[in-house]
């Protein structure tokens, strides 16, 4: 099962990638990401005049010998990033293979981050139970795969947007939210308004299935909402489908606009294209990974 969801060989393909963030807010531990602050890495950064109180160990004595003035030699600092992946566990995520795709995507992102030596946290929830995972270091990739793979089918009926905030830890550098976005725009707006206070670099992946993108129903269909179980009777015609697609596009456009307003990045992903494709092409193209 585990192997099926995320075969190990794929890890190697992701090996060269790392998550890119312009957010200056990094973790306190050492990592592989350059910080804007000076630090203790091996890379030289700059010279600066000595001021009383500076660490004497950092004085470049060679420069002092030539100029007779004490200079401090500064190095670049390398710090870790804190990556958080939030997975939408509402029941609608369980339809049309979205759940597997979303988990694969989470694992892939986690692997990329872990390999870079960042702290990765992952959270989702099911009815009555919260799932939380936090590790640092490439060693933990397997355990993360195992953890995420073991999460059952989603069964949450209440809205994702209502509970999302509670499952985001503090001091997160990059926040990935994997969802299907099938909630009222008003609720999204509510969530978006509060997210920038928690994290400055938020990336939302909206997962769409093929059936959602291009409905292939025929005749008279009674659609049952998997979450609310409310039915809608529709006579599926080309016109009806057209109408549906228009509504969907409008909804997505609205969410995109909202996201843009709050500086949130949005990525449209489809189940059918495969998670590897999403990570290696779409995310790279969007400048999320390198």
């Amino acid at each position: 099962m585990t192997g099926q969801l995320f075969p190990d060989r794929l890890t190697k393909r992701l090996g060269t990638l790392s998550i890119l963030s312009r957010s200056g807010r990094l973790g306190h531990h050492k990592g592989t990401h350059r910080s804007r602050k000076t630090g203790a890495s091996l890379d030289f950064s700059d010279f600066r005049e000595y001021h009383p109180g500076d660490d004497l160990r950092h004085i470049d004595w060679n420069v002092y010998a030539r100029t007779d003035k004490p200079f401090i030699k500064q190095f670049l600092d390398e710090q870790e990033m804190r990556i958080h992946i939030l997975l939408d566990p509402t029941r609608s995520m369980g339809a049309d293979g979205k759940w597997d795709y979303a988990r694969q995507l989470s694992i892939a992102l986690g692997h990329i981050a872990l390999k870079s030596g960042d702290t990765v946290s992952f959270s989702t929830w099911s009815d009555g139970q919260d799932h939380f995972f936090r590790r640092k270091g490439a060693v933990h990739r397997a355990s993360m795969t195992k953890f995420i793979s073991s999460i059952n089918e989603p069964g949450v009926v209440s809205d994702f947007t209502d509970r999302a905030l509670r499952h985001i830890p503090k001091a997160v550098t990059v926040l990935f939210i994997i969802t299907d976005g099938l909630e009222e725009t008003g609720k999204w707006a509510h969530l978006f308004r509060r997210l920038p206070g928690i994290c400055r670099d938020i990336r939302i992946v909206t997962v769409h299935s093929k059936q959602e993108e291009a409905p292939e129903y025929d005749g008279d269909v009674r659609f049952i909402d998997i979450e609310s179980e409310a039915g809608v009777e529709v006579t599926v015609t080309r016109r009806a489908v057209q109408d549906y697609l228009e509504k969907k596009a409008a909804h997505e456009a609205k969410i995109a606009a909202l996201a843009g307003k709050y500086g949130i990045q949005l990525l449209h992903a489809e189940v059918s294209e495969g998670f590897m494709e999403t990570v290696t092409k779409k995310m790279r193209h969007a400048g999320w990974v390198r």
């Binding site: 339809a95 959602e212 009777e233 109408d243 909804h251």
Partner: peptide, 22 residues
């Protein structure tokens, strides 16, 4: 009266909207 085939989908959000309008 029409007999509807039942189909469970992720969300009837858009269908509902489109039907409401028609």
């Amino acid at each position: 009266r029409k007999r509807y085939e039942t189909q469970t989908i992720s969300s009837t959000l858009f269908w509902e909207q489109s039907m409401r309008e028609t």
